[in-house]
Design a protein around this nucleic acid. Structure first.
Lengths: 196, 196
DNA sequence: ACCTGAACACCGTTCAAGT
DNA sequence: ACCTGAACACCGTTCAAGT
């Protein structure tokens, strides 16, 4: 019995991600993956269910690549650097990154990433009941921008302009978070009052 | 000479869009398109360059489906209803819509859509030099939200919650536009003044 | 238990041939 | 001028067979 497996799921995903980054998503083929890990295409099916499972594995990989934000900096700084890292990750994986916008954000890895943002928002003073929706809005905007940038929608703009635009996006989101936090603070102090 | 052509580019795109809407983007195959227009797959190549050209044609179709916003309503209302129509279009074409985020926004059709937004922003009082960047930010946010909603990223949320989230997104963008307009207004009245 | 060879249905695309 | 048949290289996937 030829015991020692020569490949495993991780090697397959490594190969698939490398191919996607170097030659695009359409080059990610069972044959190309197999060739890269030194095996026959049919051998892959013992370690992954099918090609869709490979694609799922790729977005899982992106999610686990997220660093948890260091928790000692003030919230605004923490969210800002996290956003910057997301954008950098999009540049590293321009073909796989857009898939993040198209998959349910409920995998364990996705939940972990969101946890970091939740804590920063609560610390900013956002009403806990509104933290989830606030997070959804800001990550959608950031993912949308990074996807646009990296997959060609903004390809006719010089990079410096895109940097400035991204800064402006972060300013807008910061303003939004602050207005959320203020609203929560006001509600705390004067629970149901209505100005006449 | 069998003169009268039985198919043309428009029929091909009609068929491709219908297939994508009904059975998903992966079902859009040269054979399926040909079958739907009653012809052999090879016949398509006389009217479109290749499959990528068909995909390009599909996003062009989505763009031309945008109505120009009626110009008699106030700007906020106009942008709001335009955003709503974009979201409705995403629901009509859930598989093709995400491609909008991934293609250069410089086709004639894309320019036409942006023109309507530009006018609304200028009318809102945004500095003409900043209109383009402002438009980029708000359409990215709206496209990102609609893409997320329609391609499953928010599939674990009840629709009513998504409606509320979309409202909130529009509020945030409205606030942003107003703060841009105020900044422009202030600059007009006191050109270079700095508060001490 | 893991990998391979052979095989299948299905892709996109070409080119010469028909009308 | 437009469509088709035959053909090619390439997909994903299966299954029985090898070690």
């Amino acid at each position: 019995m030829g015991r020692t497996a020569r490949i495993d799921r991780d090697m397959i995903l490594d190969a698939a991600l490398a191919i996607a980054d170097q030659h695009g998503l359409e080059a990610v083929t069972m044959a190309a993956i197999a060739n890269r890990v030194g095996v026959t295409p049919m051998a892959l099916y013992r370690h992954v269910a099918n090609k869709m499972a490979v694609l799922d594995g790729l977005v899982e990989r992106l999610l686990t690549e997220f660093p948890s934000p260091a928790s000692d900096a003030p919230w605004a700084e923490r969210l800002g650097s996290l956003a910057g890292e997301i954008r950098a990750m999009a540049c590293r994986h321009p073909d796989v990154f857009p898939l993040l916008l198209q998959r349910p954000a409920i995998t364990p890895e996705a939940l972990h990433v969101r946890g970091g943002i939740y804590r920063a928002l609560e610390e900013a003073g956002v009403d806990p009941e509104r933290v989830a929706r606030t997070e959804r809005l800001i990550s959608t905007a950031i993912l949308g921008f990074a996807t646009s940038e990296v997959s060609g929608r903004f390809s006719h703009h010089p990079p410096a302009e895109l940097d400035a635009d991204f800064e402006r996006l972060l300013e807008m989101l910061g303003q939004f978070i602050e207005s959320e936090a203020n609203a929560a603070g006001v509600r705390d102090r004067q629970p149901v009052s209505q100005p006449t």
